[in-house]
Simulated scan of single mutants.
Amino acid sequence: MPLPAKAFQRWLHGIAPDTSIADVCRLSGVKRTTLAQQLVRGKVAESTVVSISRAFNVNPVTSLAYFETYRDLAGSQIPPSPRELVSQIATVDLLRAMIARSGNEPAPEASGARQAGLLALGPAAHATSVKNWVDAIDDGELRHRVSAATGIAPQNYSAQLTANRMAPEVAIATSRAAGVGLTGGLVATGLVTEAEAGWEPGSRQAALDMLSDGDLTVLAGDRLQALGKTLRRQEHDHQQTEKIWENLG
């Protein structure tokens, strides 16, 4: 839910009282026309607040907590569960971990930097991070509870997960419905980083290391199966589109 422009202006005056809008946009990378349009409409996007917060060295989660919709973000949060942490590891990183465990690590003569580059985890938000996160916290009834709380039809909610996107307020509602920390969905959607959300450094790697070889293999297999279905669906849609164009001549 976009944030009220009046509340945004009060917040902005609090963190940058002597800074012009032009300078705010220049420092944050937010287009001046974009911010102007949002202010005219009376609704400012959460991503705008996040970008400006980073430019002025303010934690984005703290900034969001200034607004009524996200007031519950203030104070300490429940840390992410191991399942949530693993959900924020990309499939390719799971496969790399499997290879490393199989004994096919980089050769000893490879530089430390090269090894680190091969084994370091990518960003928490990845190609299927939103759906993976919801699956990790779903007890089987989560989608229905979120639908009841937000008014979003279950099929529309599922469509958002398939598209790997979710509005911030829906992410918060999902966390509440699941009884988990409120920042998990914000990380999964890429709105904030794991560090900004207060996750312990290296927590995703630690959760990955805790997986047994069997659990890691099953998880990677499930991810690959889901990826295969997505690719086949995309290929089918592409073929159908080509046929339509061919028929149109």
Rank of each mutant, 00 (worst) to 15 (best):
A195C: 01
K229D: 15
S76D: 15
A149T: 04
G214C: 02
D237H: 07
R176P: 00
D23A: 09
Q88M: 15
Q239M: 14
I99Y: 01
G249R: 11
I172T: 07
A113I: 14
N104F: 11
D213M: 00
A97Y: 01
V40H: 11
G75R: 04
R71L: 06
V49G: 06
V30E: 07
A110Q: 12
A177Y: 00
W133Y: 10
L121V: 08
S175Q: 03
A148R: 14
W11M: 00
P4L: 05
G202C: 14
R26I: 03
E194F: 05
M166W: 05
V30R: 00
R165S: 14
L94E: 05
V86L: 10
K31R: 11
S212L: 02
E235N: 08
A226R: 15
E46G: 03
S47L: 06
L85R: 05
A124G: 06
G151C: 07
T174E: 01
G75E: 05
A153F: 09
Y70F: 15
P2R: 13
I52D: 01
R114Q: 10
Q240S: 13
S147V: 09
G103A: 05
R165D: 10
A116P: 01
A55G: 06
L248I: 14
E242S: 14
A16T: 06
I99H: 04
N247M: 14
L227Y: 10
R143M: 14
I78W: 03
A5N: 07
L35M: 05
G42M: 04
R101T: 03
M1T: 04
R10C: 04
A188M: 09
S147L: 07
L231F: 15
